[in-house]
Design a protein around this nucleic acid. Structure first.
Lengths: 215, 215, 215, 215
DNA sequence: ACTTAACCGAGACGGTACGTCGTGTCTTGCC
DNA sequence: GGCAAGACACGACGTACCGTCTCGGTTAAGT
């Protein structure tokens, strides 16, 4: 769990062991919580996106009072973040094959696969919604992007150590050069986004670096 | 391809030379049209973004009946597209300095400058809105991205001819590798987006290609 | 034509022989005028009534510009009045059978027949509309009610002369006692309104008067 | 007959003893309900009438959301009916002086007084609106006319028993002959409607009957 | 034949109100 | 004290007509 960077989330009360005491009154309904998250994802995949998604509809679909939604999630953004960001965790881990290019390429292919699936709509909705909702894009960054990027640093570092990449490379620059094109094609849809695209980018970016003399 | 120009727009009637005849009835008010577009941009720069923008407010600000807005623009998306996409035309032309890297870098710096300015909110709104509105992202592509990309092809082509880039390069791949990182930082805001970033990307991508032996 | 009491109407220009001269310019289109009146009656019979009737719809149905309607009729009221009030003229003349009761009864039966027909909706619309439009109820009075009432005076007068009614009777009171019940049932619809009702009222009111000693 | 009371109204929920249970959810705000009715009457007295009255204005005046109005009253008509018809109840009861003519005359005078007052506009609006809204005129009949008419039957019946009216009289015919003229003058405004008119009609109609031999 | 002037259709214009939807808050009785 | 139900004030939606305003195109009478 750990970071919980943004207090955006709707994790159940008792999750942190701050105190042995449970607060008085009826405890939060885990059933409602999950029902809400499920309905959120469901509707997000159906409808036009973040803008079209209504709390009213979520509450209705989840058989839950609107109050219950508002009680636990301050904004629609927080809810959507919560609903999605816990999901694709395992799937996007980085492999360790002994080759940077292969490691990166494999993980990028998996990202593309997700973006092309139903869940892609949710990512699109998050980024889109984030353009007019600072909290939302922040949640996306902190809870989706950053956890992965930390692993990516390690993957690239291994490459440097193996001499596949020049020492002193700007890792953030490299990562944005690798992932930027994917997000761009995903969002603007001006060109084909298939899994081979991962290889092509890695070829262009990482090969170029390979040939570069060590600083 | 095919700049079919997506009949999303609210260009004045007589613009296309389909017919010498003017249609009957009172002609469209050019004054109203411009007032609406002006107000749209104005409010778009102020408010939270595409989602916060209301047609009601635009009509009020432009001293125009709501009907007049709806008569000419089918959706808010179409209106925003129209309002912005005619604007930053001149500014984003490509120079011709004799060096691909310099040409690209200079133009990319100008793009970054725009994205960082007030007008950047409009671009963000368009891309965001486009995630749940196919027509809108289509308009963005056809009327903003494509016209520029055509010039970019020529710029890269000159580089190939001068031997700065290997012949047979995948131009679309190169361009996405150059611009993708910019859009990614712009939209996700996970890292600093200043004009130097243009140079860094060009350094990474185009230098890598330079070192690559001709196919 | 004579009375033209309220200048509500849309009679064609040249109708009055004020001057041998025709004004310059294109003369009014008789075709349009009739088409408008026709469509007005048609829609009035269909729709919910005066309130539901829209000038927009009339103009569309009549294949006429809205301007043409507004040019000739200042209000919807004026238009409706004009459309209807010329129609049922002949039909409501009073007979002269030699018996007041028979004369009145026959004419009242004809009125009831009209009220029960499609044209009844127009009368209802006029009276209804007249409740929030002084001009309209005035037009109804002056152009429908009064012309008939003048004839009714004569009919009753003949009855007085024949000794069927007491001299010095309040004719207006009598007429309202005869017609009031009809209009009441017509508008409130709380009881059956058939042609026999005419006889029943005449029986009650005129018989009562007959038995009354001459003043 | 059958006071089925036309479920047009916005009476508070619990009014009918259908069930001991209160429905779930926040109960209806009695305060809002009354505020809406109050504002309706107020505006109805001011403006041109039923047609000029706008729900928008009512909601604004009552400090209430438009939704709340629409939630409880299906049409403007229903609202107006509700606003008025509960009001003039006490005032129009029939006296019992021992004389039919006096009883009727007194009550008719009170009706005329109301019609001439501000509240008359509401009656006019109801009848006018009822011409294009079956439910509205039904409400007027069932909730205004009928309750009074039932009392009128008793009044007339007493007259028959006292020998002031012939046995076997058609009570409905008599009542329409008495009230019809009042409504006619009220709606068409072709002649003076003052309280003496009540006496005149009673004189004409009831005197005539008095002289009539018993069947 | 040419001008002048009013009419005509079409339809865009600034507005007002419509009736609906979703917002976030509130108020109940039950659990 | 959480929960569902659902009413509440509010604000924007997209639509229908309002009455006014331009247009190009007739249709005559007066030159």
């Amino acid at each position: 769990m750990a970071q919980n960077h943004t207090r955006i989330a709707g994790a159940p009360h008792g999750s942190d062991p701050t105190n042995g005491k449970r607060p008085p009154g009826r405890p939060r309904s885990e059933e409602s919580r999950q029902s809400i998250l499920r309905s959120t994802l469901k509707l997000l995949k159906q409808d036009g996106g973040f803008g079209e998604l209504s709390i009213e509809a979520i509450a209705a679909d989840a058989n839950v009072g609107k109050t219950t939604v508002y009680r636990w999630w301050p904004t629609k953004a927080a809810l959507v973040a919560d609903a999605f960001l816990a999901s694709a965790d395992e799937e996007l881990r980085f492999p360790n094959t002994g080759s940077v290019q292969k490691d990166m390429s494999l993980q990028m292919r998996r990202l593309i696969r997700i973006l092309r699936s139903k869940r892609g709509k949710v990512v699109a909705a998050l980024i889109a919604g984030g353009q007019s909702d600072a909290e939302l894009i922040e949640a996306f960054r902190d809870r989706f992007l950053w956890p992965r990027r930390k692993q990516a640093y390690q993957t690239l570092q291994r490459g440097i150590e193996r001499g596949e990449l020049p020492a002193g490379s700007d890792l953030d620059l490299i990562l944005d050069s690798l992932y930027g094109p994917i997000y761009m094609r995903f969002l603007i849809r001006h060109d084909k986004l298939d899994e081979n695209f991962a290889d092509e980018i890695c070829g262009l970016v990482l090969q170029g670096l390979k040939r570069q003399p060590q600083r």
